[in-house]
Simulated scan of single mutants.
Amino acid sequence: MTATIHQIGARRQPSLDPMVALVAHEMNAVNSVILDRMKSDIPLIPELAGHLIAGGGKRMRPMLTVACARLVGYLGNRHHRLAAAVEFIHTATLLHDDVVDGSDLRRGRRTANIIWGNPASVLVGDFLFSRSFELMVEDGSLRVLRILSGASAVIAEGEVNQLSAQRRVDTGEEQYLAIIGAKTAALFAAACRIAAVVAERPEAEEEALDSYGRNLGIAFQLIDDAIDYASDAETMGKGVGDDFRDGKVTLPVILAHARGADADKAFWRDAMMGHRISDADLAHATGLLRATGALDDTLARARVYGQRAIDALGRFPDGQAKAALVEAVEFAVARAY
């Protein structure tokens, strides 16, 4: 069967609805695992974890596991527990990230660390990591365990790398891409790849799904970094300009700093050091990003990575699952428009 070649941006108003519909029945099983494994005799654990897990997130990563399993024709149910493990890893990293960043909003709601404090958030994050590893071990596949545990380690490395780059306006594009490749794209890649593993598909299909997830994850993060300056709190689910005020040196900032005049470079140095964080400063920063083409170029690069993700699906036959995975990429990129 000849597969169709898809070009990103070929359809209007892409949506996650096709993927949600595709995986709805199986996601009920995944959610049951999540709810069951959040249980604890310590009431604070399910209360705090439930606050974030029930906070309106799209469950993008576990949905990818389920959708990729459908793509490769897997008929079992091992991927339900593994998708839950993926969500636990993601949720644990969010809890830890919010503590590190001092965030007060997540998906439009107060963060767990603001409500219960930093120690509780860190410890419940540890609990969720432990639950994820229990689910991996119960699956019984050393290959699955290697992929997901490896992704967990890479995510942690990415977060430390980002912390070391924080407020350093001289951070290079290579380091930035390494950071988002680790802290965001690694889990996307693992979530997709394990579907081919449980289905016992050839290595080439594993690699293709890994490439799809990895490139989608990079595109997803590039868009997130752009809309921190070009969106609103309702759209983003977090405070507008959080990255700016936290001194996170993302690709838009790297490009604008490199292209700016001496006065602009001085502004970015002061801003990333936390000396220029007012609303007026944020507006000035956004103006510089637009004037230098930094925002447009960041979005353009997101489209490139999105197209790579779509191209990685080329070896798979057309059908409902492939169409949903393609549109998920288009949706991720279109969030900035």
Rank of each mutant, 00 (worst) to 15 (best):
T4C: 07
I8D: 06
M19C: 08
R11H: 08
S15A: 14
A29Q: 10
E26W: 00
N31L: 08
M19E: 09
A3N: 14
S15T: 09
G9F: 03
L16I: 12
A10H: 06
H25E: 12
A21N: 09
P18E: 02
I5A: 12
V23L: 06
V30K: 01
N31H: 11
S32D: 13
N31Q: 15
S32A: 14
A21H: 10
H6C: 13
R12F: 04
T2L: 14
R11V: 15
L22P: 04
V20D: 02
A3T: 15
G9V: 07
D17Q: 11
A29P: 04
N31S: 14
V30D: 07
A3K: 12
E26L: 01
A3D: 07
N28E: 13
A24L: 07
R11D: 00
H6D: 02
T2K: 11
L16M: 12
A29R: 14
I8Q: 07
Q7T: 12
S32C: 05
S32M: 12
R12K: 10
A24I: 11
A3I: 03
A21W: 07
V30P: 01
A10V: 02
N31G: 12
P18D: 03
H6E: 01
V30G: 05
M27N: 01
A10D: 12
Q13C: 09
Q7D: 04
P18Q: 08
L16S: 05
S32L: 11
L22A: 03
A29H: 15
Q7G: 06
H6K: 06
P18R: 06
V23C: 08
I5G: 07
R11Q: 09
L16W: 04
Q13L: 15
T2M: 12
L16N: 00
N28T: 09
S32Q: 15
T4V: 14
P18F: 09
S15I: 05
M27K: 00
M19S: 03
H25S: 15
L22F: 05
A10N: 08
E26T: 06
I5W: 08
A21E: 09
L22I: 11
G9S: 07
T4S: 12
L16D: 01
L22Q: 11
H25N: 13
V20H: 06
A24S: 14
V23G: 02
I5Q: 15
G9E: 03
D17S: 14
S32E: 14
I8S: 01
